[in-house]
Simulated scan of single mutants.
Amino acid sequence: MKKYFAFLLVAAFATKASAQNGFQRTAKGTEYRMLTHNPGDRIKVNDVITFEVVQKTDKDSILFSTYRTGRPAQAQIQPIGDLMDIFPLLTLKDSVLIKVPTDTIFNGHEDKRPPFLPKGSNLLFLMKIEKVQSLTEAMAERDKEIAEGKALIAKYQADETTNTDKYIATNKLLLKTTPSGLKYKINKVSVKRKPLAGDTLLVNYVGRTLDGKVFDSSIAAEGMKAGLQRPADSYQPLQMVVGHGEVIPGWDEGLLLLNEGSKATFIIPSKLAYAEKGAGDDIKPFSTLLFDIELVKIKPGKHVPVKAAGTKPVKKVAKPPIKKAVAKKTS
């Protein structure tokens, strides 16, 4: 749906409007009505503008609104399209209503015309200019935002490391650490075989944040104790194919270190879990996660080369254990 309205927006900006009463017409025929007009320098070619825009039908049904998305639009002014008739008329904080006949938008594209935009109807664009910058100013602002974002991420990562080290020291944990940063401890040793990438595993688990919050579990007693909102009959070992990105990278790496029947504790840094995005209400951005794991059974499968643990979570977020625990998060 978003792509469809994006098509309408681009098409409207490149088409000519027909005359209607109450609107002024530019030399190229674009119709507009100034709602507010302020003194000051007018917009020029290559300026970068930040603006709010509402797109609606002539029956006043809103199709798109930056006010609703909470993020204004931004564009660099280029000497193409009929809106270049409009922008040179505007200054900072000006607002304007632009009318575009849908017949010109869908000329040659009638198959894309929706029922709510019949022939003879119009699209209305209500625009308000919130910021006008030179290209140099806009690029400097962008570079500053990027630098500030990197600095903030570095701070969050440093805080995460500090909190993890403090947790390990407080609980006097003796852990091994892999090159990727996964920390683990084998709590129950087994001499049975280890899995290979492509094997199907049955896994019992309890997932916690470092503050002790249980966000998911395959074990009924643990889930009910933590008050997890899930059906009682859903508690059973998780079945998943290891090494295929079906779970977070920390799981894919850690499970390959275990033997069938063994139990372990994983401490998984956010870069091997949900990084800066987090997952739901319980797993905040840059959260290190703790899992108590039991590798219940290995079902041999098609073996593939092991995926190296990366610094970013896989695009498909983990199926249980975490997905069920954060039911509010949708993809």
Results as ranks from 00 to 15, higher is better:
223 G>L: 06
223 G>E: 08
223 G>Q: 04
224 M>E: 12
225 K>Y: 05
226 A>G: 09
226 A>K: 08
227 G>R: 04
227 G>N: 05
228 L>I: 10
228 L>Q: 07
229 Q>R: 10
229 Q>G: 09
229 Q>L: 11
230 R>E: 12
230 R>V: 10
231 P>I: 14
232 A>P: 10
233 D>E: 11
233 D>F: 02
233 D>H: 07
233 D>T: 02
235 Y>E: 02
235 Y>M: 09
236 Q>Y: 10
236 Q>E: 13
237 P>H: 03
237 P>M: 04
237 P>R: 05
237 P>G: 03
238 L>P: 00
238 L>R: 02
239 Q>A: 09
240 M>G: 00
240 M>N: 01
241 V>Q: 00
241 V>F: 00
241 V>H: 00
242 V>A: 01
242 V>T: 05
243 G>C: 00
244 H>G: 03
244 H>K: 05
244 H>D: 05
244 H>Y: 03
245 G>C: 01
245 G>Q: 02
245 G>Y: 02
245 G>T: 11
245 G>K: 04
245 G>N: 03
245 G>W: 04
246 E>I: 01
246 E>W: 00
246 E>V: 00
246 E>Q: 04
247 V>Y: 08
247 V>A: 08
248 I>S: 08
249 P>V: 03
249 P>Q: 02
250 G>W: 14
251 W>C: 02
251 W>R: 06
253 E>K: 02
254 G>W: 03
254 G>E: 06
254 G>A: 13
254 G>V: 11
254 G>N: 08
255 L>R: 00
256 L>N: 05
256 L>I: 07
256 L>G: 13
257 L>A: 14
258 L>I: 15
258 L>T: 04
258 L>C: 12
258 L>A: 10
259 N>W: 15
259 N>V: 13
259 N>E: 11
260 E>K: 01
260 E>L: 02
261 G>T: 07
263 K>M: 07
263 K>I: 02
264 A>Y: 03
265 T>P: 06
265 T>L: 12
265 T>R: 07
265 T>M: 06
266 F>Q: 04
267 I>F: 11
267 I>K: 14
267 I>M: 10
268 I>H: 11
269 P>V: 15
270 S>F: 12
270 S>N: 05
270 S>E: 03
271 K>F: 12
272 L>C: 04
272 L>R: 06
273 A>R: 03
273 A>M: 11
274 Y>I: 06
274 Y>L: 14
274 Y>T: 01
275 A>M: 08
275 A>Y: 08
276 E>P: 10
276 E>W: 11
277 K>S: 14
277 K>I: 04
277 K>F: 14
278 G>F: 08
278 G>C: 07
279 A>D: 15
279 A>R: 15
279 A>Y: 07
279 A>P: 10
280 G>F: 11
280 G>P: 15
281 D>P: 09
281 D>L: 13
283 I>Q: 03
